[in-house]
């Protein structure tokens, strides 16, 4: 029986879809059976980030309303046989499905997968309620800025009222430079405010944007800095204890030289 994990944030644009795509792909890389589920009805993106947009025939709403079987709406990934996507509908809106229908779909998928990763839309309304209805666990994504953290906190408060495990935190788009200069919250500030377990952090990396443009999740590129962060998260989900590295980024060559010389990096 698989585990359903919802990826949520409150605030929009902080990296839910990027995180869903990459955690899902990283788990598939480890040989797990994974189903990605896009619940952002009307604003679907997950198919684009995965580069699967031109294979969609049926979608989540079709499955919910019985126009097709759930299995018929699933799309197989280009890279991994064990990775599937259930796309959202682009023409409808969030009210096209209700939490009960969503839970029924998740429950139907669970026996066939190890993990079901549910990409949640921004906000705390119907779309959010739909997305969490079938979840066993939750990942809250935030960026290290005041308003994203405030919204993440709101979501954590709402998740605590649901019948799911305590949520885990992913801090995305970390820029160590800004934090150390005091122009941005650092990861410690974020973790201490939200007071939930840190699952991992991802550096701000323009390769992520390029990868999304190509339709190839960044984890597929082992040389990128963000890729390492996502791979570590996947390993932690699988139960390995992977130590948190300082911002999980390789220090630049100059920084290394400076620190060797005892200068402030």
């Amino acid at each position: 029986m698989g585990e359903a994990i919802v990826v949520t944030s409150g605030k929009g644009g902080v990296g839910k879809t990027t995180t869903s795509a990459n955690i899902g792909t990283a788990l598939a890389l480890q040989g797990k059976n994974v189903c990605l589920m896009d619940t952002d009805i009307g604003l679907r993106n997950l198919d684009v980030v995965m580069g699967l947009e031109n294979r969609i025939i049926y979608d989540l709403v079709d499955a919910a309303e019985g126009r097709c079987r759930v299995k018929q709406a699933l799309i197989k990934d280009k890279r991994f046989d064990c990775l599937h996507l259930l796309p959202a509908a682009q023409t409808k809106d969030k009210s096209a499905v209700n939490p009960a229908q969503m839970k029924a779909i998740v429950d139907e998928l669970k026996p066939d997968y190890d993990y079901i990763i549910i990409d949640c839309p921004a906000g705390i309304e119907q779309g959010y309620k739909n997305a969490v209805s079938g979840a066993d666990q939750a990942i809250v994504v935030t960026t290290p800025d005041t308003s994203a953290v405030r919204d993440a906190d709101r979501i954590v408060g709402l998740l605590e009222q649901e019948d799911i495990d305590p949520p885990k935190l992913v801090v995305n788009r970390v820029r160590s430079q800004l934090a150390s200069q005091g122009d941005m919250l650092d990861v410690d500030d974020v973790v201490s405010t939200l007071a939930i377990d840190l699952l991992g952090m991802i550096v701000d990396d323009e390769e992520v944007i390029k990868a999304a443009h190509r339709g190839e999740p960044i984890v597929m590129n082992p040389n990128s800095r963000a890729s390492l962060g996502y791979r570590n998260i996947a390993r932690r989900i699988l139960g390995e204890s992977v130590p948190l590295m300082a911002v999980e980024e390789k220090k630049s060559f100059f920084a290394k030289v400076k620190s060797m010389l005892g200068l402030k990096a």
């Binding site: 919204d151 906190d153 709101r154 408060g157 007071a195």
Partner: peptide, 8 residues
Amino acid sequence: SQIIRSGQ
């Protein structure tokens, strides 16, 4: 004994 979060 709890955290009073944003919106609560």
